[in-house]
């Protein structure tokens, strides 16, 4: 392994890391919003919308992100909808992540005993107040481990962005290997940068998970 090469490539990997994080966080934010809305729809069993959410979940959980990106980036322009590579990445990540987030939130909502909903309603709270003040705070805290697992999963999924010409970490490594054939250095940096990105999330996640456990009552 040649340290000069490592240093020379470092800025390129840094750019790739920032790109991955930028798209990653925006995509994950979108996923989070979709997850909240979708799970609320499922929770209240709103007709029509409920079916749409169901289709969304099955569609995006049962197709690979690669296929979804291909579709958004290469097929949509054929019918006149042009999206930039970055938008496509965020959209793909948000839609895929949304499907997983809905399920995660839903499992949190379902974990709250129905007696709590019944009690809240009998105290005169309406549906929304019950959800907002009683159910959701507990449901979110129960969902935290699942949410963090989703975040890490989604950030790792960014490694297929190379297909749509985004210079993420994986593509930067592959590209440099293709041009200069310094395989060991490039792959070493690749592992290091993925760890730089994901280890802190994993560790912070462990801390948050421990704190959020206070959010439960009733048992």
């Amino acid at each position: 392994m040649n340290t000069d090469i490592l240093i020379e490539y470092l800025p390129l990997y840094k750019d790739a890391l920032f790109l991955t994080l930028r798209i990653g966080w925006q995509g994950i934010f979108l996923a989070f919003v979709i997850g909240l809305i979708g799970s609320a729809i499922l929770h209240f069993k709103i007709p029509v919308l409920k079916s749409i959410v169901g289709v969304h979940i099955e569609l995006f959980r049962n197709t690979p992100l690669l296929v979804q990106l291909f579709f958004i980036y290469f097929a949509l322009p054929k019918v006149g909808i042009q999206v930039t590579a970055e938008t496509c990445g965020k959209l793909g990540l948000g839609l895929l992540g949304g499907a997983y987030m809905i399920e995660t939130f839903r499992s949190g909502l379902e974990a709250i005993p129905t007696i709590q909903t019944e009690s809240a309603l009998s105290l005169g709270m309406n549906d929304f107040q019950t959800l907002w003040h009683v159910i959701l705070p507990q449901a979110v805290s129960i969902s935290v481990p699942g949410l963090l697992a989703n975040v890490i999963f989604l950030l790792k999924e960014t490694s297929v962005f190379s297909t749509i010409s985004l210079m993420d970490l994986m593509f930067t490594a592959k590209d440099l290997i293709g041009m200069y054939a310094k395989t060991i250095e490039c792959l070493f940096l690749l592992v290091v940068f993925y760890l730089i990105m994901l280890l802190p999330i994993s560790i912070i996640g462990a801390i948050v998970e421990r704190r959020m456990r206070y959010g439960q009552f009733g048992d």
Binding site: K78, T163, S165, D175
Partner: peptide, 14 residues
């Protein structure tokens, strides 16, 4: 940059 010929071709056509 694209990592395969077919993708570069489609992107160029688009």
């Amino acid at each position: 940059k694209y990592d395969a010929y077919a993708e570069a071709k489609t992107a160029f056509e688009n």
